[in-house]
Design a protein around this nucleic acid. Structure first.
Lengths: 350, 350
DNA sequence: CTGAAAGCGCTAACAG
DNA sequence: CTGTTAGCGCTTTCAG
């Protein structure tokens, strides 16, 4: 590979001149410019990133940590990050933290070792103390997205889980549902609590509280949705609507519902969260709360990029709104069966 | 950040000794080792990747190009790559080529500029000549996965599309289907042709040829599946089975089928390809040909890693087998309606 | 406007 | 076993 020295020799100028031309700073005469450009062209010269990085202490690499690279949800977020980063001439290295504190620590350290200019973190755990110190000492700017907070972060992008869950719950309530089950995700996730707080808000708007619905905690998985729903059908047959912690849980719930011969939404309504790819492919199409996760990735990256450019961060915390996606899985309460008829007006009943 | 010089001073040895200890080559006395380790610990020293890379001309970064980072299909592959790379202490930078020749060129150049030690490419187009030369000159080892071939590749991992499609078609044929439509993907993809050749093979096994089924080319998209199926229902009502080019196409086909009130698989069978996440969430569950794409990512990375280690590549071309996933969308031909009864025995009919 | 010079932090011979 | 030495390729003052 040709080096800057080769180019300078061929062009009959000094290396500094070549460097200046490439960097686009300092003055270069037209004559020199032409000679250098020709030489670069001819030699197929490409600057050595590592030498440049060593000198300037910038790698033009942004590091990203998400829960799991291979999940469609994070893949979309990474897509958004990459798109934005690329347009600024930066690359992205992503690592998975697997919602595990040590794995997250490992991932961050790996990225820092790669001399990333900045970090975008979607963490599910508090940063380990030693990592906190390493991050701080490296002075690498950090932006967080969703998930957990992180002290050294200069900016934070959150998805408005609370408002989304509130809108979802309100939809159910407005459709007349009063016997609602919320199949929550794992309790280690921050999202879980945010959504619960939104649910509380919606409930409060109807003069109700969380005690008036049934809440079960599990994990963000299809298995949980299926098992919990199967139990639900036996133990709480009066349930008219299920709000699933996410679309995977909803998919499992739907499986159980179908297995029990329940018609959705005629006999029981089902609401999801995320708007994953499969949401629209379920039958009936899943009504769900969309998290614009690609947008979150873009916003976070833009934020980090401006921090790297030394611009002051106008809004250190940006909230991305969710959106209720109406499909066919939520319907009004039907007062057809004797059971539901006696129950329907009982606003204050458990 | 502490440098190797700081460590050597603190430990009272030379930088070389520190370097040797870290690299694990050369002899270091126990005494020196202890002093250095203590100093490293105390200073929180981490070697500077760029300086090291500049010197040794190795970045420990592997570059990957896939069609689209945010698609679940490639996300899974990236997951496999990353897992394997990480266990060897390497990181991965991925870029999207968007099945476009220039975008692919751009992605490869970007990765090469990042001084990647090796490249894993999933390309859909022939390499642009200038890029070919750049890759060759950089002497960066290349491994390809799926997609298109690529001259400079030292090894190639393919997914056995042909055998997979053959198994799929045979399943349909064995179930008695003779009026089959194959809704192929785009003609720019290599996969498309490989699958067609497998289909030919299955057909030949039954004394049939491609002329005995109906083939329509489109794209690997839900929209295509839906539109083509809608047309099919009108123009070729005798069709008893649809083999979709991939699961997205199948999802679209299912939508059209349901829209037309067709029962799957009672009235018409549907077979997919890929086993994407949503395949099992469709109703009925989609019978499909699974591509173990995560495994392909792992194998490709392992291959590249061994090339980087200077090991001779035993098998320069590895084929990953596909697997037929049986769910509920394919059933036997029913000879209930008069139409199908008259048609069923007509093996040689179009 | 341009060149000379001085490293960035690290590694790898090569002598001790 | 260890220190010295000489750069890897590039950028950036600082004088011209």
């Amino acid at each position: 590979m040709a080096t800057i020295t080769d180019v300078s020799k061929k062009a009959g100028v000094s290396r500094s001149t070549v460097s200046r031309l490439i960097a686009g700073n300092g003055y270069v005469s037209d004559e020199a410019r032409k000679a250098v450009e020709a030489a670069i062209q001819e030699l197929g010269y490409r600057p050595n990133t590592m030498a440049r990085g060593l000198r300037s202490n910038r790698s033009d690499i942004i590091g990203g940590v998400v829960v799991n690279v291979s999940s469609p949800f994070y893949a979309q977020m990474i897509g958004g990050m990459q798109e934005t980063a690329r347009s600024a001439g930066k690359s992205i290295i992503v690592a998975s933290g697997y919602a595990d504190r040590d794995e997250e620590a490992h991932a961050i350290i790996e990225l820092l070792d790669r001399a990333c200019d900045g970090l975008i973190l979607y963490l599910e755990n508090a940063l380990r103390d030693d990592v906190l110190e390493i991050v701080a000492r490296s002075k690498t700017p950090v932006v967080t997205v969703g998930g957990n907070e992180c002290p050294p972060a200069r900016a934070r992008v959150t998805i408005d889980n609370a408002t989304g869950a509130e809108a979802g719950m309100r939809l159910l309530l407005e459709a007349g549902h009063r016997h609602i089950a919320y199949l929550s995700g794992g309790t280690i996730y921050r999202d879980t609590y945010e959504r619960l707080s939104g649910i509380d808000a919606a409930l409060a708007g109807f003069g109700l509280s969380r005690d008036d619905i049934y809440v079960e905690h599990g994990s963000f998985s299809e298995t949980f949705g299926q098992q919990a729903t199967a139990r639900l059908l036996i133990e709480r047959p009066q349930t008219t609507a299920i709000f699933a912690g996410d679309d995977d849980v909803a998919a499992g719930a739907l499986l159980a519902l179908k297995g029990a011969g329940k018609r959705v939404p005629e006999e029981i309504s089902l609401l999801g969260f995320d708007d994953n790819f499969h949401a629209r492919h379920l039958t009936p199409g899943l009504t769900t709360v969309r998290q614009p996760v690609d947008e979150a990735g873009r916003v976070a990256t833009r934020l980090l990029l401006s921090i790297l450019d030394g611009e002051p961060v106008a809004t250190p915390i940006i909230t991305i709104p969710t959106e209720l996606i109406m499909r066919q899985s939520v319907g009004p309460v039907r007062s057809l069966s004797p059971t539901s008829r006696t129950v329907a007006p009982a606003l204050t009943a458990s």
